[in-house]
Write a protein that binds this DNA or RNA. Structure first.
Lengths: 207, 207
DNA sequence: TAGATTGTTAATCGATTAACAATC
DNA sequence: TAGATTGTTAATCGATTAACAATC
């Protein structure tokens, strides 16, 4: 039953298409062309048609792709139809912004717990969550079957927060801080790098 | 004097190396090997040595690359040695988090202005900035020579905020919201997509 | 000297692009 | 029918990887 794992590039692009399709659906559009998908994803339209046609004939010539149908098929391909629980570290401005946005919820990620070191914040509500102390990380991660941790802490606290999550069983760390974070093999660290991406955009503006 | 523009991939990777090197420097390390750079960037070490050696012999065999020296050389290659001004739209939790972090400042980006629609917030200080009304966007963008705009607004407000910036002369838009944003040719939109990247990480965890 | 790591080659693989017949 | 857009081919280009001599 286990199919071959997708090449990195294909999986990355399909994830990106899925995110765009989810937003397109919200806007009420029923179909989308490879051309439009290309404008939002910066992937060549031929490449998009190629990526999709490798799994079946999902589109209608002259019309485009049905948004709902395509979302379903890509979720199948990526095995990400389910609901997944996530722990958020840090209830400062960034943590609260993440906790109160739909950015993860739209894709089936449920923020199941929110942690902070600040005793003033602990016990207080943020959205439908209550801020918990770090001493409860291990137990909560186990209880709620959390496999993803999101770091919304100051750079100096990032490594310690990551270690705590990893030791509790988290296998994917999402790092919003600018700090570099180390992890043992088997744990994926994904660091947001807005400044890096901005440098890249700026290069093409300046040349 | 105008050299050939770098291939997209090379510019993207060099930007990423620069971001990692900047953080490495902060940690006090003086040199870094292609192996270590690979662990933080997820780029193959041979590819890194190849990227760098295309511009000169920057490393020392048996030692690695001098961090300071390499930062200088990559900045030269990317023409991003200067200081650049940036406008931040939105002074909610996300906007304040961005305004008070060093994530952009570390790379020579100065947040030169902060805008919001909320009359309660206008006029109040956030860090060393004062929240300005949207009516001042055009004038401020011109006065401070702002070429980059950062959207930290609710999804429903993203397109309007982008339009305002673009009409004022901004050429690079950084979209932190999950909304899709359209722009005319000549304007680069860069959308953060944490959920998309998380789907990607999850795929490799699940398979 | 011994160990480590760069710089570079060569071979393979995946991405990009143009083009266009098929067909909705 | 006419216009639009997919599915697919073929050719080119860039990325990836292993391997290793050079050299710090």
């Amino acid at each position: 039953m286990q199919e071959e794992r997708l090449p990195l590039g294909v999986a990355a692009r399909l994830s990106r298409y899925l995110q765009i399709l989810t937003q397109t659906k919200k806007s009420g559009k029923r179909t989308i062309s490879s051309q439009t998908l290309s404008e939002y994803s910066s992937v060549n339209p031929t490449q998009i048609r190629r990526d999709l046609s490798a799994f079946g004939k999902f589109g209608k010539r002259g019309v485009g792709y049905n948004v709902d149908y395509l979302i379903g098929r890509i979720k199948e391909i990526l095995h990400t139809s389910g609901q997944h629980n996530l722990a958020l570290m840090g209830s400062g401005n960034l943590g609260v912004a993440i906790a109160t946005s739909r950015i993860f919820a739209d894709h089936g990620f449920d923020i199941a717990a929110l942690f902070d070191t600040d005793t003033v914040k602990i016990g207080h509500p943020v959205g439908r969550l209550v801020v918990q102390p770090l001493s409860e990380v291990a137990e909560t991660v186990r209880q709620k079957n959390i496999i993803v941790g999101v770091l919304a802490v100051p750079p100096a606290a990032a490594q310690a927060a990551a270690n705590l999550l990893i030791n509790s069983g988290v296998r994917i760390i999402f790092n919003y801080s600018e700090a570099l974070v180390d992890a043992p093999p088997g744990v994926a660290i994904h660091s947001m790098s807005p400044a890096g991406e901005l440098l890249y955009a700026l290069y093409f503006y300046l040349t």
